[in-house]
Write a protein that binds this DNA or RNA. Sequence first.
DNA 1: TCACAAATTTATAACGTTATAAATTTGCAG
DNA 2: CTGCAAATTTATAACGTTATAAATTTGTGA
Lengths: 343, 343
Amino acid sequence: MGTIMKLGTGAVTKRPTLKTVAEKTGLAVTTVSKALNGAPEIAAKTRLLVENAAREIGYVPDRAAQRLRTGKTNVISLVLSPHDEILGFSNSLTLGLSRALRATNYNLLVTPSFEESTEIKTIEKIVRNKMADGIIFSRTEPFDERVRLLIENNFPFVCHGRTELSSTHSFVDFDNEEFARLAVSQLANKNRKRLFAVMPDRKFTFYGHLKYGFTSAAADIGVSYEVPDDVNLDSAPEEIYACIARRIEKGTCPDGFVCAGEVAAMTIMACLSDHDLLVGRDVDIVAKQTSRVFDHIRPRVDTIIENIAEAGAMMGKMLLDDISNPNAPREGFVQRPESELLL
Amino acid sequence: MGTIMKLGTGAVTKRPTLKTVAEKTGLAVTTVSKALNGAPEIAAKTRLLVENAAREIGYVPDRAAQRLRTGKTNVISLVLSPHDEILGFSNSLTLGLSRALRATNYNLLVTPSFEESTEIKTIEKIVRNKMADGIIFSRTEPFDERVRLLIENNFPFVCHGRTELSSTHSFVDFDNEEFARLAVSQLANKNRKRLFAVMPDRKFTFYGHLKYGFTSAAADIGVSYEVPDDVNLDSAPEEIYACIARRIEKGTCPDGFVCAGEVAAMTIMACLSDHDLLVGRDVDIVAKQTSRVFDHIRPRVDTIIENIAEAGAMMGKMLLDDISNPNAPREGFVQRPESELLL
DNA sequence: TCACAAATTTATAACGTTATAAATTTGCAG
DNA sequence: CTGCAAATTTATAACGTTATAAATTTGTGA
């Protein structure tokens, strides 16, 4: 039943195990194991001998056996919500995460939830069946049940976004309040007076940050503002389109848009264009930029950059830290807007 | 060292194993194992007893132990090239794959290669260390070394794109020749006479298909055509932009573009727009559409749809089939363009 | 050279599962 | 009832690793 190898040489051999290395070196299996794991009691001479032998015959530890014995999976699970699929978000997050895991021997398991409501089950399953050593997810809510579950089970995780729970936990978030303030001020500089913002669903923590930043900045500057409650970033593009079209037709079109998502911004632009309104002349838009799509879109739109790939990399790094130091205090990090998007 | 569970009840218990179920039912561990695996020799009554007991105490088999014992990993590895990161491709592929794996107990491992040149090493490692039961990858070449390696090692895989190797293997491809013919004919219908195509890198199999479809259709219809050799779909957007800009400035701008990638199409559009050329009036573009971005881009562009998510789902399904029937003959599938993109 | 501690190596068991072969129970013909 | 085959259950070993505790070797001071 052993795994057959036929790489390189063309010869068919069984995959080498600790036993193979032990036989080759004349040492005990235990010694070989310890030598390869850097146990301090192994003599330097022995360690060298073992390392050479192992390298020579191409020994690689069997993950399944290690996992069975130690309970460590060497797997990080990225749990995706159905909405994460849109455009770059999950893509960039995955990219960043991969980078963080690159030089380690952790693997990235992607676990999609097909319905928002089953995501907690997905996570429960991962915890209960110990399918990973840590979890990454996004779209965090103020009293997020996933966060509660994971804290309760003392299971390492890093989420994208903050909570309002009293227990601290690791997270990476973007300074959405600052984003909104900047956006408002850019629009005000262009002399826009009637601002309109497409926000995330109310249930997410970052809705609050964005809304506060948006409304307070607009109030400070003294321009009118509006946060619609019939559309949000998760709305179907058609709904957003229809919402804006309605405004235009009723003659109540805003002149400045703050848009916290790329797709929504594109949809708004399409709608404006279809109604012969010109960005830069009749209205202005400030969009959150998380990918390079806007580089190729005309007319050009003002953007404020959130670097998701970097967030992913940080989350990965933090998670690995949390896994290796289970009792260290947890902390969060809040990203600032960047001036250029480097991927 | 056993895994501690603290789900639901709040009680702290060890994770149940076959042994737990055996004790509860008064049967032997072996019997329980067989009952749960549907072995034919187990009495119906016993099977029921075991199933109930297992459900009751929430028994879930330990993957690591199964894997160690059977050699089966229950993992599918998606090996990504650095270029796959762009826009929707890997995203859609992942989505489709996840769907195919959804109701199974396979997990999706995402394994990025950070350099094109190390991808073969990545695959070798997966094979050698039996990190997965099967592999998915894209950007297939006519004499693809990855395909060779995997066939040689008798390792299940499905690639996106065909090869010209004599051994058959599983693949899913898109009918790029048909795509190119359709594109040319749409442009000809709009009375475009000087066609230009942005193609994939020469090394890929689908370069050949696209090029043949493009050139032969153009020749049949009798319009002039050109396939530049200084830019391709993997070129930096700036290079594509510069290439088109040069044409426009020299007064040798084509009037019809066939573009086999979304980002490249957007880049061309941006360049045209920056030079006051209007799509639909001065030039026309036919783009390959693999996501919904074009729904939100103005002016509207003609697209021909390649459904990558569906390709991903098929690849997943084929791979699972291949894994369970190691000796069945392998076959490929060629997708046709679709009229509407359903994700 | 001996005693004894320190350094190093080793044997054993265990993680949870399943393949194999052996043991037991059941059913049925005689 | 008995005997025997068929049906069903079970004991044992093994997958490759590491934690634990025990055994051995080495080094040191007297």
